[in-house]
Design a protein around this nucleic acid. Structure first.
Lengths: 134, 134
DNA sequence: ATGCTTGCAAACGGTTTGCACGTGT
DNA sequence: ACACGTGCAAACCGTTTGCAAGCAT
């Protein structure tokens, strides 16, 4: 797996350095993590990185299409690996839990709406804010 | 109209002060404006406010349900009057133009999705990023 | 050997806050 | 008169950047 990661990085024109490999590895968890969370995790596991490096690496990964950046809450951004099959998110306002989902009906409807207004749909951002049903 | 505005403010427990009335008036334009844009507009029209006041007023308005805050681009937020009939937004990546729309199919689909996962839909955020059809 | 990467600390940009003064009711 | 609102400047917080040193190829 690490060999694979190395290749992925090189294909993206990025030298396979330790910070990059470590960050990639953390992202494999499938969680939605902030730069700071990743940074803290590395420090706690006694790998010394600079927070700036974490930001730089994440930005490079984003540009390379390796990760996707979200801003569910206004201030800090979170990152997740781009598994390349698109999904949207639901955030529980009570627990903060993030649920991923995909809905073809909504997707195609979005296309139609853009078209109807004379535009091509390039991308979209959709987050549902929810609470556990009682 | 200004009398009405005054009443609205008071109902929200906010004294009807000049900064608040002026900001309310600017928002009537129906545009999506940032705090800084509102601030500049006031200064340019020779009404001296502090930027901090603009932020404070907008936050109070948001809490009172008078305005809605969006973050279409990551950094600055924009505000619009809450006309209380809900709509979503489409942003043109080339011109920056913002188009409002409402789609019942998507709305009800969102409800269903939340339910299907055992949640109640409280709110949502949806932005389509588009480009003019060529 | 070269140029990309890194860590650090300083800068950044949007937003918030403490404080003393001003204003609406 | 009183509490609430305001302006200013300083603080804030997440993120970015300049620089000199370090590392992958």
């Amino acid at each position: 797996m690490s060999e694979n990661t190395k290749k992925n990085l090189q294909e993206a024109g990025l030298k396979s350095t330790l910070p990059r490999l470590k960050i990639m590895e953390i992202l494999q968890s499938g969680k939605h993590l902030s730069a700071e969370e990743i940074y803290k995790y590395l420090i706690d596991n006694s790998y010394d990185v600079g927070l700036a490096t974490v930001y730089r690496v994440l930005t490079q990964f984003e540009n390379a299409g390796i990760v996707i950046k979200h801003s569910f809450e206004s201030s800090k951004s979170v990152y997740e690996l781009n598994d390349s099959d698109h999904h949207d998110h639901m955030v529980c306002l009570e627990s903060g839990k993030i649920i991923e989902f995909h809905d073809e009906i909504i997707e195609s409807r979005q296309e139609e709406i853009a078209k109807k207004h004379g535009y091509d749909l390039i991308d979209h951002n959709m987050v549902l804010y929810v609470k556990k049903k009682k």
